[in-house]
């Protein structure tokens, strides 16, 4: 294999992927490197390979060809089980909506990631509470079940969970699509502020071009060959 990259959070070389049994590559990405704190905006309509890219980045699937390094770990070589653990420790994920398990309390939802990463809960609890309060969820709300929260609040709890262990990478898949314009801007600012605070690199996927303004780097799924561009 090639030399171990040193400084990148994510380092991706000649990545190629296709679903088993289908002809042609679903995803071809020649080159992508992100250093710590370099946030990336990925724009793509549905069907453009967005989901595939997210599954690859988070280690749910592995590329057929090419290399994918996360924090100097070769994701393309690790076993499924190791990738799962690495995901718990190094990657936070925020979905479009319904990020939380409805019957668990807000705090337990945040602490889920610590449990699967094998981290002691006592240490994580204080940070979970802090994060939630900074994200605008007051202490009494922490013991409510997730189902009692508004959509905007749920998305903010999802950020708290994604950033709890100060992961290297935060993957956000259209997290603002269920929010109205005011909530959306507040959400973007809070998310990026907290990510910077945790030293986490954000990969933000959306079809909404207006959100590009928050990022320095930009990748268009329809023009992958061009690679990452500056905004």
């Amino acid at each position: 294999m090639t030399d171990k990259p040193k400084k990148y959070v994510i380092d991706l070389k000649n990545l190629q992927f296709r679903w088993p049994g289908k002809a042609g590559w679903q995803l071809q990405l020649p080159n992508l490197q992100l250093a710590a704190g370099q946030h990336l905006f990925v724009r793509g309509a549905s069907g453009s390979g967005k989901t595939t890219l997210l599954n690859l980045l988070s280690g749910i699937t592995t590329p057929n060809e090419g290399e994918l390094w996360l924090q100097q770990q070769p994701m393309h070589q690790l076993s499924a089980s190791k990738r799962d653990t690495l995901r718990a420790q190094q990657i936070g994920v925020v979905f479009q909506q319904l990020n939380l398990i409805p019957y668990l309390s807000v705090l337990d939802n945040v602490l889920l990631v610590a449990r699967f990463a094998g981290q002691p809960l006592s240490a994580s609890k204080a940070r979970a509470s802090q994060l939630l309060v900074r994200l605008g969820l007051t202490e009494p709300m922490h013991l409510n079940t997730a189902a009692q929260l508004s959509v905007g609040q749920q998305q903010r709890v999802a950020i708290a969970r994604a950033l709890l262990l100060r992961p290297a990478l935060l993957i956000a898949d259209e997290p603002t699509s269920a929010l109205d314009a005011d909530n959306r801007d507040a959400f973007m600012q809070l998310m990026l502020a907290e990510a910077n605070d945790s030293g986490t690199t954000v990969i933000f996927v959306s079809h909404d071009k207006a959100l590009r303004q928050y990022f320095h780097w930009y990748l268009d799924m329809e023009q992958l060959a061009q690679g990452v561009q500056a905004c």
């Binding site: 799962d84 994920v93 979905f95 398990i101 889920l112 699967f116």
Partner: peptide, 16 residues
């Protein structure tokens, strides 16, 4: 399905 996706995202193994 949603529950499964969330648990996977936070690092649960399929065997979990």
């Amino acid at each position: 399905q949603r529950e499964i996706a969330i648990l996977r995202a936070v690092g649960a193994h399929p065997r979990s």
